[in-house]
Amino acid sequence: MARHRTPLQHACRAVIPLAIVAAGACGRTDLGPWELAELEPSADAGTLGEDAAADATLPVADATPDAPADAPSPEGGAGGSSGCTPAPEECNGLDDDCNGVVDDGLPAEPCPGGGARYCVAGRLSECPKRCEVCIPGSERVCQVAYCLYWGVQTCSADGRSFGVCREQSPPAQCKQAAKTHERSAELEQCCIDAGYCCRDEYDLDRDGDKSEHLGACEAVTCE
């Protein structure tokens, strides 16, 4: 795993203020801006050389902004740990009923289509989705910048992303649009009119999202 380092690696990171020297000693002289940014200590990174920035495994209490002094505490419910006044438990990250457990005993809220919303991290979760981006193995039409201007993207096996856009010959009804307009909004419109699921590269629905798809996408979208 990326977070396990040898003592030698720890030593190297400890001399990071001398980044260039350290990089040279470690066999690297080509540190880019992103690397230097990573090496700089952050507010929550703790002691330099402790790998804190990369290894910050924190319980929520460590990472939550300070609460107002008179607000209910996670441990003690309303009024703080010294004077907990029991109240009905709510999904708020607090021990409202003063039983020592935060957000316990709250029923899940059923979701349309199945699954439920749960109280998690003091908030009600979203409903589960069948997949995150697309149905595994489904395909949508995309546009490429050369030759045929038409391509197909396949959804990955885990439904989390589309693969690369592979060039293909456009269907007969869109050949002319591809030839005349090349990569264009006109070609995207032709794709939709021809009954395909098409990547909305030209934001034809004007919602600001160019990564979504439009058209006949029932077998592609996760909802």
Binding site: T6, D55, A56, A108
Partner: peptide, 28 residues
């Protein structure tokens, strides 16, 4: 039966970085 544990309030966090990673020493 659909009952759930009261563990949703326990978060565990980490900080990831974009590749490529600085692994100069381990590259030796």
């Amino acid at each position: 039966v659909g009952r759930t544990s009261a563990s949703g309030s326990v978060e565990r966090c980490t900080r990831t970085v974009r590749p490529p990673f600085f692994e100069g020493c381990s590259a030796a």
